[in-house]
Amino acid sequence: MKMLVVCSDFPYPADHGGRVDTWGRIKVLAELGWKIHLLVCGKQMPSKEEMDTVYNYVEEITLCDRRSKLADLLHVIPMQVQSRSELSNVELAGDYDYVLLEGDYVYPVLQNPKIKHDTVILRVHNDEAVYFKALANSTKNVVHKMYYHMESRKFTILQKKMLEKVDKYLFISSKEFESFRKQHPAAKSLFLPPPVTKVNFEASDFRSKHVVFIGSLFMPNNREAIQWYLEHIHPLMLKEPDYKFIIAGNSRKQSLSWLDSYNLKNVIVHDTPKSLDEIYRSGYLFVNPMQNGAGVKLKTIEAIQNGLPVISTSIGYEGTGLVDNEHIMVADRPEQFYGKIKQLFDDPQRAKSLLESSQSFLRTHYNHKEVLKTYMQSLNVSYPVKQVL
């Protein structure tokens, strides 16, 4: 069985949400016995070491140039998609049993003569029209706001074009899956939860008083989340003995001057850390105070796997299936958010119980391998009795 996986970004290292999902799936497909050819059209060239790691799971890697130009803004296709138009011309071997598109950005590959549309499966990471509208709401930069609104409208049109060519969909968000299924019942769609990346989950000792946020620091919706916390929650938390707010993420070498207008007492920032393990290990709980977004915020799932109970806004946990006050704590107003943190700080046993419940939920409901295997079998794919492990 042979599968072409098409990505808009090299999937390794898995240092942000999209890569975590894609990289985990590549490993699962390899375990299921698929021969994988990987086609990537992104900005950054992987190192030899990164390529070698990926070659442990795939047979072939093809890299394609992403070419952005100002004129792409005038195209009816979203700029994120138009800049990857070279995918339509890449030399491919063909004869793939299935082609897995990792998101809408790689739409141009559907124009490639070696791609048969009846073999195509789309992994929906976000409702991109909703996602770009959310980015527009998050940014204060007027030019960026205009760009995000423009991309949002273009993705609405693109999604209709996609429906004409693709009838197989795997949603990362249960919420977006349910909405899509009601509108398009004839499509072969399924909620495929993100892969659980740890064999053994971690467990906090709940001794520190560190509140942790980990997310891409170059993304406007993550910046907005951090700013909301620093403005509304952090001043209240400074009353707590030994409290610290730990921020970590990849800045892509962009300035962090957007933090300068806030009180950064007891704030520690890890810009593009090589490892997140010690940061998770040092934490008491994880906060996801996102105000705008779409799809599943994998930072919430990653935090639970890494041993931290989560307090989130409604946006920060939507589409995960997690239940408020059973697996996670949810609050949208600042006074409620602060109250939830204080509650867990004052009651380590409650924090431990919440973490254990959420980890149990992931073990039961986030079996990426079995759900993906069952879905492929529904497409008349038969697996050998002895799987490649």
Rank of each mutant, 00 (worst) to 15 (best):
S261G: 13
F337V: 01
R223S: 00
A14W: 14
G339S: 14
L29I: 07
V196H: 10
L4I: 10
M329I: 07
F206H: 08
I304D: 00
P334T: 06
I301A: 02
Y131M: 10
K116R: 11
I121A: 04
K116V: 05
N250K: 15
D260P: 08
Y107I: 02
L63G: 07
G293N: 06
V124L: 02
L354A: 06
V90S: 03
H210Y: 14
V199H: 08
D72A: 11
F132G: 00
M3Q: 08
L163P: 03
F10L: 03
Y169G: 01
Q305T: 02
A294C: 02
E49R: 07
K2N: 08
M237D: 00
S138A: 15
Y131Q: 14
K114M: 12
K160F: 04
H365E: 12
F171D: 03
L389R: 12
A303W: 05
I77H: 10
A129F: 09
L264R: 13
Q111M: 09
L92T: 00
Y284H: 07
S204C: 12
N266A: 13
D21L: 08
I315N: 04
K43H: 15
F345S: 03
E86P: 01
A71W: 11
K161Q: 12
Y169K: 06
K244R: 15
E59N: 14
H327G: 00
G215W: 07
H125M: 10
L264Q: 13
T300N: 01
V28E: 14
K198C: 08
C7Q: 00
K244P: 01
R153I: 09
T156R: 10
P241W: 07
R181D: 08
A225I: 09
Y96G: 01
Q359Y: 14
V76G: 11
P348H: 02
E176H: 07
E86W: 09
S88C: 10
D104P: 04
